[in-house]
């Protein structure tokens, strides 16, 4: 892997992590509901409320 590609990967990963964090209010509810239907209560709470769960 070239250094340029490695830099792009690192920067892309950080940007993706922020995107996931900032859009949490949108995706966490349906994902948590899906996890609850499958009986994963603690994980559902953690996904929905993050560190508050």
């Amino acid at each position: 892997m070239t250094q340029d590609r490695a830099v792009a990967l690192i920067v892309g990963a950080i940007a993706a992590a922020w995107l996931v964090h900032l859009s949490r209010g949108w995706w966490s509810k349906p994902v948590a509901a899906w996890l609850l239907r499958r009986g994963h209560v603690s994980l559902a709470m953690r996904v929905r409320f993050g560190r508050r769960a």
């Binding site: 250094q3 340029d4 490695a6 830099v7 690192i10 920067v11």
Partner: peptide
């Protein structure tokens, strides 16, 4: 590390 953008980052 060899010189390059990764080292600088």
């Amino acid at each position: 590390m060899p010189e390059g953008p990764l080292k600088s980052l």
